[in-house]
């Protein structure tokens, strides 16, 4: 029966993929293969609890504590597990350190493997064909697109993530951050700096910060 859509006589119909997902959820719940409450918990975790602030905390601690940093670079999994960060899919975490001699950058050429416990869900550009193809082929041009220009004598190393191994970049600590506590240091660490498509931000002067 024709009806007037302008006053929405019925609930707004979701998109085709949204309806297919609802169908899967209904079927799997009826068969006891999933618990709706477990789905809500997973969504809440990734939407609200896990994000780049976790990785920033790890980086700030590594900048502040040489023993922590050494342990993190040697074998990240136990160090991160102590902080409560571990891969729910059983993946291994590897932390790669930026130095004046080498800049590190992370990609997943297969799909979108990413250190979820430390950075949350990857941004759209990380999942795009353009980044996945170009990061390996022309990393310096990709970095330039992100506004990062490295000294000519800094090598760029690109790490390709897999289902088993996820990488986190430990950016270089900005100059002029002596005496900063871990919270202040963490504020200098962006998501992109831990993927390697940005540098850690230098501290702002007080005049800039008040603008």
């Amino acid at each position: 029966m024709p009806h007037d859509h302008s006053d929405h006589p019925h609930a707004l119909l979701p998109s085709d993929p949204a309806l297919r997902v609802k169908a899967l959820e209904t079927i799997l719940t009826r068969k006891g293969l999933i618990e709706p409450a477990a789905l809500d918990e997973i969504i809440d975790t990734y939407q609200n609890k896990i994000g780049p602030q976790n990785g920033a905390r790890v980086v700030a601690k590594a900048w502040s504590d040489p023993a922590f940093k050494a342990a993190l670079l040697a074998d990240a999994d136990p160090v991160l597990a102590d902080l409560g960060y571990y891969g729910r899919q059983g993946e291994h975490m590897v932390v790669v350190e930026n130095t004046p001699a080498q800049h590190n950058m992370v990609v997943c050429t297969l799909c979108s493997c990413y250190p979820w416990p430390l950075l949350g869900i990857p941004p759209g550009w990380y999942k795009s064909d353009a980044y996945r193809a170009r990061a390996v082929r022309e990393p310096r041009r990709v970095l330039a697109d992100f506004g990062v220009t490295l000294p000519a004598d800094t090598a760029v190393r690109v790490w390709d993530s897999t289902a088993e191994v996820r990488y986190l970049v430990l950016p270089m600590r900005p100059d002029d951050s002596e005496g900063f506590d871990e919270d202040a240091l963490a504020a200098l660490v962006s998501r992109d700096s831990m993927i390697g498509t940005a540098l850690a931000s230098p501290p702002q002067s007080s005049s800039e910060a008040s603008v």
């Binding site: 949204a18 609802k22 789905l39 969504i43 869900i121």
Partner: peptide, 13 residues
Amino acid sequence: AFLEPWHAQVFAL
């Protein structure tokens, strides 16, 4: 983290 609710749902599933 997710642009649409169904992205979150299919991820969580």
